[in-house]
Amino acid sequence: MSGSFAEQVGQTVPTTSHHLGKLKLAGLVRNRRAGKHQIYFIEDPRVVDLVHLDIAHHSPPIG
Rank of each mutant, 00 (worst) to 15 (best):
S4Q: 14
R33T: 14
L50W: 01
V51N: 00
P61D: 03
G63Y: 08
K36T: 10
R46D: 08
F5K: 02
K36E: 05
L25K: 15
D44G: 00
R46Y: 09
P14V: 01
G63I: 09
T12W: 02
G63Q: 09
R32D: 01
E43R: 14
M1L: 14
F5E: 00
I42Q: 04
V9Y: 08
S2P: 15
I39H: 12
F5Y: 13
A56P: 04
D49N: 11
Y40S: 02
D54Q: 01
A34V: 15
F41R: 09
T15C: 01
H57K: 15
D49K: 12
T15P: 00
S2E: 11
I55V: 15
G27D: 01
P60N: 09
V13N: 04
L20P: 02
A26L: 14
H52T: 05
Y40R: 01
S17H: 06
F5Q: 03
A6Q: 03
T15Q: 10
S17N: 08
K22I: 10
A26P: 03
D54F: 12
K36G: 10
S59K: 11
D54W: 07
A34Q: 12
L25A: 12
R30T: 15
L53K: 15
P45Q: 09
E43P: 02
I42L: 14
S17T: 11
T15A: 13
L50F: 03
V29R: 04
A34R: 13
L20R: 03
P60I: 07
A34H: 05
K36S: 12
P14K: 06
H52F: 10
D49E: 14
L53G: 05
G63R: 13
G10H: 08
D44K: 14
A26S: 08
V47S: 11
E43H: 07
M1G: 14
F41L: 10
Y40W: 12
I42G: 04
S2N: 15
I62S: 10
G3L: 06
V48Q: 06
F41V: 11
A34P: 00
Y40N: 04
T12I: 01
F41A: 07
H18N: 08
G21W: 00
Q11V: 05
E43Q: 11
S59A: 15
M1Y: 09
R46I: 08
S2K: 15
E7A: 13
L20Q: 01
E7N: 09
N31I: 00
V48I: 11
G63N: 11
L28R: 13
R32T: 12
L23C: 06
L50C: 00
I39M: 05
S17V: 05
G10V: 10
G10Y: 02
S17A: 10
K22M: 11
K24E: 14
